[in-house]
Design a protein around this nucleic acid. Structure first.
Length: 424
RNA sequence: GGAGAGAUCGCAUAGUGGUCUAGUGCGCCGCACUCGAAAUGCGGUGUGGGGCAACUCACCGUGGGUUCGAAUCCCACUCUCUCCGCCA
């Protein structure tokens, strides 16, 4: 959601930003029209309510003075007014709902620092690190390694749940837990407070972070109007929904592990081999609540925090800045962190770090008080993966495989895994 | 799952149909007193919307209803607490 006053006063600024994202700018005019209608109706409604309040208050006074006849006369007077108010209330609500719907669909604007893209350019590489390993044998793909060493049972996962629900077994399960614990501890030591959230959330939470109302078909729904979380971003960000935060507490830096559930509707068949794209997967997520003054600096350090995990694991990576035409609707600025798969010979996204500015905080109503006694302002909210685990996991298998078929466990994971290698 | 109690302006409480545009205490802010502090006194102190000034509307867990008028009465729901049952 954007600031209503910004859209009213500077519609061209909003149109320009939406155009940079290559999204439909006509939503601005839809907003302005709906807003006009709503405000006109509201004005009329409030006039009628003020009149009604005045009369009712007077009736009370007349009753107290014992002037029953005059009171009865006043009651009769309000009959038409009452009907009119009911009418206007309904009308106003209709207009407000329409406005709200448009507002929830309105994308965020890209930050000035975000480069424009074009049909061929959707990102810029801003940083690279590590060395691509040179193999003196042909590296096997992670799904072959996983099967050969009995780390992941894809077939039985498909049997008990469906494709995209891998079962990690034996040393494979142990390695998964090692990676999760390593990542959470790693970020906790870098100043994030750990959160272990619920895996189901209500509708209001998903509206708060922007998954609803637009993307309901991407979510697994449960009974009781609860949904399985597609990312820990949802529960963690919504921890402070409808709250006013203490300015002294900012920035708040949280991280948490969760399983993530995505229907991936429409993505079937594309890059789904092995652990690349799953319906259930594990991820450690970072969420920050910051003042507008510091949010862009926080985005840089958050991205560094994601990168640091790969450095610790000694995996080659690159950081790309997403151009305006490919940033998600919610974000103002976005960096993706990618890791290199030597067997598939391509870069895999393992983190996406975004500053949403006040887009989510307006939806979720999360504010802070800049000064004691000052009016509350919306906080800036950021999030990023630290990291998406299956692609890191698969890259570890591929990158650290040896000619004899075993796999070396990265040094930082060994204390968690309790051993130096897989297989053999 | 069953029975009961509760949800009021940061906290605690009052309020059971008409100056409640919600009282009081604590906390907080300002001022006075003081060398300073404490104590004391006085004043102020919620959120959101529209106008963006005067002003006005809404909000007493949420949503409906009754009424000229609802924090107050009725219905449904949510959450919290107590007890019982069940259970990892």
């Amino acid at each position: 959601m954007l600031d209503r006053d910004l859209i009213r006063r500077h519609p061209d600024t909003v149109r320009h930003g939406i155009a940079r994202k290559r999204l439909d700018v006509s939503i601005v005019d839809q907003f302005l029209a709906a807003d006009e209608q709503w405000r006109a109706t509201l004005l009329e409604l409030e006039r009628a309510q003020a009149e009604s309040n005045r009369i009712s208050k007077n009736i009370g006074k007349l009753m107290a003075e014992g002037k029953r006849d005059e009171a009865e006369a006043a009651k009769a007077e309000t009959r038409d007014l009452k009907a009119r108010i009911a009418e206007l209330e309904a009308e106003s609500r209709t207009h407000e709902d329409a406005l709200r719907q448009i507002e929830l669909d309105m994308p965020n604007l890209p930050h000035d620092s975000v480069p424009d893209g074009d049909a061929d350019t959707i990102f810029q590489v801003v940083r690279e690190g590590g060395h691509l390993r040179q193999f003196d044998f042909t590296p096997a793909a992670h799904w072959d390694l996983a099967e050969r060493l009995h780390l992941v049972d894809f077939a039985r996962g498909a049997k008990i749940a469906g494709s995209g629900f891998p079962v990690y077994v034996g040393a494979g399960a142990r390695l998964l837990r090692a990676v999760i614990t390593f990542m959470v501890n790693f970020q906790t030591e870098r100043g994030y407070q750990e959160v272990f959230p619920p895996y189901l959330v209500n509708r209001a939470s998903l509206v708060g972070t922007g998954q609803l109302p637009k993307f309901e078909e991407d979510l697994y729904a449960s009974t009781d109007d609860l949904f399985l979380i597609p990312t820990a971003e949802v529960p963690i960000t919504n921890l402070y929904r409808d709250e006013i935060l203490d300015a002294d507490a900012l920035p708040i830096r949280l991280c948490g592990y969760s399983a993530c559930f995505r229907r991936e509707a429409g993505a079937a068949g594309k890059d789904t081999r092995g652990l690349q794209r799953l319906h259930q997967f594990d991820k450690v997520e970072m969420v920050k609540f910051a003042t507008p003054e510091t949010s862009y600096a926080e985005l840089e350090t958050m991205t560094d925090d994601a990168v640091a995990v790969l450095e610790a694991l000694q995996l080659p990576y690159r950081v790309i800045e997403i151009c305006a035409n490919d940033i998600g609707a919610k974000g103002s600025k976005q960096y993706d962190v990618e890791v290199y798969s030597p067997a598939m010979e391509k870069w895999l996204e393992v983190s996406s770090c975004s500053n949403f500015e006040a887009y989510q905080s307006r939806r979720a109503n999360i504010r802070y008080r800049p000064e004691p006694g000052a009016k509350p302002e919306f906080v800036h909210i950021l999030n990023g993966s630290a990291l998406g685990i299956p692609r890191v996991y698969s890259t570890i298998l591929e990158t650290f495989q040896r000619a004899d078929g075993t796999i070396e466990v990265p040094a930082v994971l060994q204390p968690y895994f309790g051993g130096g290698h897989l297989g053999g």
